[in-house]
Simulated assay, not measured.
Amino acid sequence: MIKIKGSGQRMKGNARFKDGGFEQVPHSIHNYLKFRLITGNDLNVYIFLYQYDNVNYGYAFPNTKQIALETGLSDKTVKACTKNLENVGLIRKGKSSYQPNKNVYYVDLPLQVEELLRQVPDAIEKYQEREVKFKREAKEEKERLTVYLVEKEERDTSEVSSRTVPPLIKTEEEPKYMVTKGS
């Protein structure tokens, strides 16, 4: 396993990023993950396309192999991700006017949660089901921990009380000391 020592510097509020050197991603993208409309791989591709979105042209134009290389994903995964991102309205795919056989990607802002849920109302229901399950499992885990701690305390207490002090070993005959005159 590779072990890398991090920078140890906080990213948020770091002066190094005040004048660029990073891309801001809207908080609302989290809702797409939360409601399982996109995966972590989809987000990886979305951020990559966002970073390569050329302001002068109005779109990003990397090919699938470049996206795969830069994101660490396979070509097949990249194709699935771009298709899903297109399906959920985060990107629009088009053809380059300069090279008709080349795809271009228009990277759109994520919807705000209200609009997103209006368009996919079953997503909130599924999320709420997962939330109820999560809370139930957390409660059960807490109860198991409480039972474990009580049982452990009882075991520890009974072990201490059941310990007996071993009897002193006595020899049959006490040693005799010789007392001499003048000593």
Rank of each mutant, 00 (worst) to 15 (best):
D19G: 00
D19N: 12
G20D: 02
G21L: 04
F22I: 00
E23L: 12
E23R: 08
E23S: 09
E23H: 06
V25E: 05
P26Y: 12
P26M: 08
H27F: 15
H27Y: 14
S28R: 09
I29N: 04
I29D: 03
I29A: 10
H30T: 14
Y32G: 09
L33W: 09
F35C: 06
L37G: 15
L37T: 09
L37S: 07
G40S: 13
N41W: 06
D42E: 08
L43G: 10
N44E: 13
N44F: 05
N44G: 05
I47C: 07
F48D: 04
Y50E: 01
D53Y: 05
D53V: 02
N56A: 13
Y57S: 08
Y57I: 04
A60Y: 06
A60I: 00
F61P: 00
F61N: 12
N63M: 03
T64G: 03
Q66P: 00
I67L: 00
A68V: 06
E70F: 06
E70V: 01
E70H: 07
T71P: 08
L73G: 09
L73P: 07
D75A: 07
K76E: 11
K76C: 03
T77P: 04
V78I: 12
V78C: 11
A80M: 13
C81K: 04
C81Y: 09
K83G: 04
N84M: 11
V88C: 08
V88Y: 10
